[in-house]
Write a protein that binds this DNA or RNA. Structure first.
Length: 259
DNA sequence: ATGTCGGCAAAATGCCGA
């Protein structure tokens, strides 16, 4: 079983690429973020023709998350992260797929910092920590996949140059501490655990040929609950997808499970 | 400080969010 996550940065701007990538790599489950599409323009029919059922949660222009399942329909569990009813941004969707609870999440970016955007990021992270704990209590296999907008460390495996990002919300101690607390709850950072030993960047800005220079960051993560530990096989990044002339600024991340 | 995108509002360029 193969599970992937991909911040697509506008699903209709990349639809051909998305379909080609699905055909090439045949993931069983796909978590998408930054759909940037109103609900009624979500390309459900195109995805259906490509062999994928979907559930999605959209805003008018920004955010937006989806879960795709090959040869079936994801069973929707929730469309919102609990804890802040006034928060209407579409950043979380959760579904049962092929015996696993899967969440596609898009953590707030948090820039500019300091300010309300950064505060919102921290509140959102606190809500995620609480919900993640509840999911662990349910004692079922769970995958939390998405764009966490957090570079876990200053290690070269996570970021090409900590110095040039030092003031950015993606590398601050507070979100890093929240991410670490998630791992301390018992979740596994699968790319760090069963991924390549070489840098596994997942995001390169569009600026100044950052991709060509491999000036990247690791901010897209697939976390798994303890039940899945014995089934973890291999993780990686489809980095060549980022090389497309009109590609997203992220690359897909994937995980394979035994069975 | 900057770089570059996607998508919006509103009328093609400027803004926002990333």
């Amino acid at each position: 079983m193969k599970i992937a996550t991909y911040n697509i940065n506008g699903i209709n701007a990349r639809l051909e690429q998305l379909v080609a990538w699905l055909k090439d790599t045949r993931p069983d489950v796909v978590c998408l973020q930054e759909l940037k599409v109103p609900e009624l323009r979500f390309p459900a029919i195109t995805l259906e023709k490509a062999g994928y059922g979907a559930v999605w949660q959209c805003d008018k222009a920004y955010n937006g998350v989806a879960i795709l399942a090959r040869g079936g329909e994801p069973h929707l569990i929730r469309r919102r992260l609990p804890g802040e009813p006034a928060d209407t941004q579409s950043r979380y969707i959760e579904a049962a797929v092929k015996g696993v609870v899967v969440a596609s999440l898009y953590l707030p970016n948090g820039n500019p910092r300091p300010g309300p955007a950064f505060d919102y990021k921290q509140r959102w992270f606190a809500r995620l920590l609480k919900h993640a704990r509840d999911l662990l209590k349910a004692d079922v296999p769970v995958v939390l996949a998405g764009d966490y907008n957090v570079v876990p460390s200053d290690d070269v495996r996570d970021i090409y140059s900590p110095k040039s990002w030092a003031k950015d919300a993606l590398v601050q101690p507070e979100p890093r501490a929240s991410y670490r607390r998630l791992l301390e709850q018992g979740w596994t950072d699968t790319l760090a655990t069963v991924g390549p030993k070489t840098p596994s960047y997942t995001f390169w800005t569009y600026w100044r040929e950052r991709y060509e220079r491999d000036a990247g960051l690791r901010i897209d993560h697939i976390l798994t609950s303890p039940q899945l530990k014995p089934r973890l096989k291999k993780a990686g990044v489809d980095r060549e997808v980022r090389a497309h002339a009109h590609g997203s600024d992220h690359a897909p991340v994937w995980l394979t499970l035994k069975k």
